[in-house]
Amino acid sequence: MSRLIFNLLLQATWQTLEMVLISGFLAVAGGLPLGILLVLTGPSGLSPMPWLARPLGLLTDAVRAVPFIILLVLLIPLTRFIVGTSLGTTAAIVPLAVAAIPYFARIAEVSLREVDPGLVDAVRAMGGTRWMVIRYVLLPESLPGMISGLTVTLVTLVGASAMAGTIGAGGLGDLAIRYGYQRFNTTIMSGVVAVLIVLVTGLQAIGNLLSRKARHDAAGH
């Protein structure tokens, strides 16, 4: 492999990581509160509010229903407004985050609902407020599931960021399209695929390890 190809791959990997990690961070920052809100205001939640839970759920699923490739195009005006341009790595983060927030929110919601309601009862019976139930029960008890969910989200983002490459986002997808597809450069194509495989299996391995560590049972030690 020539030095040039190696540099291209390295730079693209770095761009992909940047897109995935920043939009992953935004997915948690936006999706976790949304997930908590969905659980709390849901029918069996701590403060049932159907007038809020239903529109929130609908909005969440509406965004998830739009295929990412269409979302990319639809969000160009928003991206221009926020970033100033619709091209490049930074610009790709906007649609990636918009897609990942509802995705992670639903995943977080599932983890939160899996928390034993007996534990919520226990903390309420101690005189815990709603906020204390979130802080002492819901968040720490769902942590292992959240970490697994975040891993899934990041892996999905790796794929989506490659798709963002088609509209000039940079990163591994962009590289594969420009050199691998349009110029039939099989070295670059197979290089990209190899890096993607390493990236995804690496993310998954780290996620599994952290999730196990967070579990505090026999499997985690």
């Binding site: 034993d116 101690m126 005189g127 002492y136 008890e141 942590l143 967070a214 579990r215 505090h216």
Partner: peptide, 15 residues
Amino acid sequence: RKIGVVFQHFNLLSS
């Protein structure tokens, strides 16, 4: 906070 509760299935926080 003035009433303690002991549960059948203990309900200890695993975290």
